[in-house]
Design a protein around this nucleic acid. Structure first.
Lengths: 190, 190
DNA sequence: GAACATACGGAACAACTGTTCCGGTTGTCA
DNA sequence: TGACAACCGGAACAGTTGTTCCGTATGTTC
C-alpha cells in the first residue's frame, strides 16, 4: 500500500471534509442522480475544488458510499456477538431497510449493480455480503431461519426491500407490516 | 366525453402506430430514461412528428404504460375465473414479476410513484390495484393466503420484487427461489 | 516578509436532454 | 389534376449535466 503521498495544505484538507460532508447529505437525498454543482454549492466550494480532490463524480460517490457502508458493517460485526442469533439477524435486516428509507443508494451496494466495478465499491460490497452471510449462518444454526435459504435470494429480497423503501418512502407501519411477511417467509420451514 | 375529433390522415395514423411501437420497445429496454431522439430514430420518424401526436414525453410514456397495463389487467380478469384461487393468485404475482424482468416501469404502475398523476396513469393504476385486490380476497377466502394481509404491504412487496427483478435482471432460478420465500410469507398463518 | 508551490473559484466546453418552429412535402378531395 | 390543409423532418433553442482550464488567492517555508 502506498503512503499518504504529501500532506494536504490546511485549507485543502478542510475543503475535502466539507465536500465529503456535503456529498453525504446530498447523495442521501438525491441518490446517484445528485449533481456536482449541487454538492459544490452545498459545500460552499467551487467545482474545481471538488475535482482536485476527486478525479470524477463516480470516485466521490464511491467514497461516500464506502464510508456509509463501513458503518453498517461495523454494526453487523457488533450484532455477531449478540445472544440471540435469530433476533440479531432480523434486527439487522430491519436496520438496513430503515437506513435505505432515509438515505439512498443502499440497494446498489448490496447487489453491486449500477456502479462501475472500477469505482472501488466492489470491495466494500463483498465485505457487506460476507458479514450478512455470517449473520445468516448463525441464525440458521440457531434454528431461527430456514436451512434451505441461500445468499442469492436473501440479497435479492434485501435489495428489493431497500429499493422499494427508498423510492416509496415506506412509513414505519408499512415497513413493519411488509417485513413481517418477508420474515415469516424466511422462518418458514417446509 | 369528446369524440375522436377529426380522422387522422393516413400517413399520420401510420406514424402514430410506429411511434407507439417503437416507444414500447425502447421504454421496455431503457425505462423512463429513454430519450425522445432514440424513439424517433427507432420509429424512423422526425422529432416533430412525435410531438404532433403526443404533447409531451410524459404523455407518450403514459400511453405506452397504459397499453401494457391494460393487457396485464385483462390477464388478471381471466385469472379471476380460475378453479384454484390460491394458485391463480400466486401465478399472477409471478407473471407480473416476470413481466417486470423483461420490461421496465412496472413498479411505477403499482405504486403510482415517479409519474405525474396528471399524465393519466392514475386511472389504470387504480384498476390494476383493484383487480389484484379481488384476486387476493378470493385467495384469502379459499384459505390460501393469510387473512391479516392487507393491500399496502402486498403492493409494497410486489413493487419491491418488480424493481429488483427489473434492475438486477433476475434469472428464472433466482426469481423462483426468491418468490418462494415471499409466497411462504404470504401463506404463513400465525 | 518574501517567494513559491499549492489550491481556489467559476467561466467555458462538450455532450446530452425535452421542446419549438418552420420550410418543404404529401395526402385528400373537389 | 389542381389547390389546400395537414403533416413531415430535423435544425435550432434552452436547459441540464460532467469535466477542464486558468488567472487569482492563499498557506507554507525559509
Amino acid at each position: 500500500m502506498g503512503g499518504e503521498a504529501k500532506p494536504l495544505r490546511a485549507d485543502a484538507r478542510r475543503n475535502r471534509e466539507r465536500i465529503l460532508d456535503a456529498a453525504e447529505v446530498i447523495v442521501a437525498r438525491d441518490g446517484l442522480s445528485a449533481s456536482m454543482r449541487t454538492i459544490a454549492q452545498h459545500a460552499g466550494v467551487g467545482l474545481g475544488t471538488i475535482y482536485r480532490n476527486f478525479p470524477t463524480q463516480e470516485a466521490l460517490y464511491a467514497e461516500v458510499i464506502i464510508d456509509r457502508t463501513r458503518r453498517l458493517i461495523a454494526e453487523a460485526d457488533a450484532s455477531l456477538a449478540a445472544d440471540d442469533p435469530g433476533a440479531a439477524f432480523f434486527e439487522y435486516l430491519t436496520r438496513i431497510v430503515v437506513d435505505a428509507t432515509q438515505k439512498k443508494t443502499l440497494a446498489d451496494v448490496l447487489t453491486q449493480a449500477g456502479i462501475d466495478p472500477k469505482a472501488g465499491t466492489a470491495d466494500i460490497s463483498r465485505d457487506m455480503r460476507n458479514v450478512i452471510e455470517r449473520l445468516l449462518v448463525r441464525a440458521q444454526e440457531a434454528g431461527a431461519v430456514r436451512r434451505d435459504l441461500r445468499m442469492p435470494e436473501l440479497l435479492a429480497l434485501l435489495a428489493a426491500a431497500c429499493m422499494a423503501a427508498e423510492r416509496d418512502q415506506w412509513s414505519e407501519e408499512l415497513r413493519t407490516r411488509t417485513l413481517a411477511v418477508v420474515f415469516d417467509g424466511l422462518r418458514s420451514q417446509r
